[in-house]
Each structure stands twice: as C-alpha cells, then as structure tokens.
Amino acid sequence: MLTGELVRLRALEPSDAESLYRWVHDDEVGQWMNNDHPLSLDQLRKRGEDRKTNTYGLVVLGIEAVADDKLIGVIDLRDARPEEGRAELDIYLGEKDYWDGGYGTEALKLMCRYGFNVMRLHLIALWVVAENERARHVYRKVGFVEDGRHRECFRGNDGKYHDMYLMSLLEGELKD
C-alpha cells in the first residue's frame, strides 16, 4: 500500500463493486468519464473477482481515506512499457464529500511517485476535458503541464462534444 496523510492507495477488492456501481450511475461523478456500456452490480462483482493482477502495463488502485478506511475513488497507470518509460494516468473520486480537502491531490502525488520511483517512468500523461477545471487545477498544482488540445474528441453525458487537453509530467517535475 502507498500511504499519505489523507489517503492510501490499495488494490481493489471484489467487495468494492458496490461503490463502483454507485459512482458510475451518478451523473455528476461520471460527467467527464468515458464509461463502458451499463453493467449490473453482479457484472461489476464478477469483473472484480476476475480482475487480473496489477502488472507493469496496468496498475489499478483504490483510493481509500485514511481517517475512516472508506473507498473514495480509483486511480491507475496504464499502457506503460518499460522501453518507452511512459504511462497514462486516470483518476476519479466517486465520493463527492471528498472532492475538496486535498484527497485527489495526495492520491495523484502518491501514484506519480510510484510511477517514477518504482516503475522507473520518465513521463506520465493524462487527458482531461477542457471544461473540467477542478481536475485541471489539481493537475497543474502537482506539476502537470498542458501539451496540446484535441478538439471535440469527448462526447459528454450532455450529448455535446468537448475539447480535451493532453497534459504531462516529467520525472523530476512533481511538486510537493
């Protein structure tokens, strides 16, 4: 486990399916997420039971609040290849009561440190919808910079297309 003052990152358990189900069915939580086709709670439980072991190419961790041991979100590093030294990051906090207070910022820092120190990555990249200013603020705060803009490439829950920013963080740029 990776532990900070506010959060710990841990492997997901099949019992986490109830939280995941609630989050993906919450329009506010899922506003800027690409979701699969709708899944039942039983299908999410099965997915959790069949989840493959974390590997270099895909590390998926639950974000748990230290104070109450409550699962509040998910973070991952994916598409990592040692010969390239880069990976893409995804994060979301499903528990809206934890959207403020530094939980996402600390989870992001813990995962980036893991990527740079343990996985020996040189670059971590992510995509964020242009209108998701809350997330963009957190990414900039920890050191991510905007590399480019991809026009109208994300179709939101509102049925409209939105621009997305590609952001990246190089080894050594993570802000404390």
Rank of each mutant, 00 (worst) to 15 (best):
L93H: 00
G30Y: 00
H37Y: 09
V59C: 13
M33W: 10
D36C: 04
K46P: 00
I72Q: 07
G62S: 07
K52Y: 00
L77Q: 12
D69M: 04
I72D: 04
D26I: 03
L93P: 01
E88R: 12
A80E: 05
E84M: 11
G94T: 10
L77R: 11
R47T: 05
K52R: 14
R47V: 02
D79Y: 03
G57W: 03
T55W: 00
R78G: 11
L41Q: 10
E64V: 14
D76L: 13
A67V: 08
D79H: 08
R45C: 01
S19G: 02
D68A: 04
S40K: 07
H37V: 09
R22E: 14
N35T: 14
G94A: 10
L71I: 13
N54K: 10
Y56F: 14
L44Q: 12
R78Q: 13
G62T: 07
L20C: 11
T55F: 00
D26P: 02
D27V: 08
D27R: 11
G48I: 05
L93S: 04
R22A: 15
E49M: 13
W32T: 05
K52S: 09
H25Q: 12
G48V: 07
N34E: 14
E88W: 06
V24P: 01
D68S: 12
G48L: 06
V59I: 12
D26Q: 07
G85Y: 09
K52M: 08
E18K: 11
E18H: 02
P82R: 15
G62W: 01
A87E: 07
P38Q: 12
L44H: 01
I72V: 10
I75A: 10
V24K: 12
G57E: 15
V66R: 10
D50R: 10
N34R: 13
R81H: 11
W32M: 09
K46V: 02
E18I: 05
I63W: 05
G73D: 07
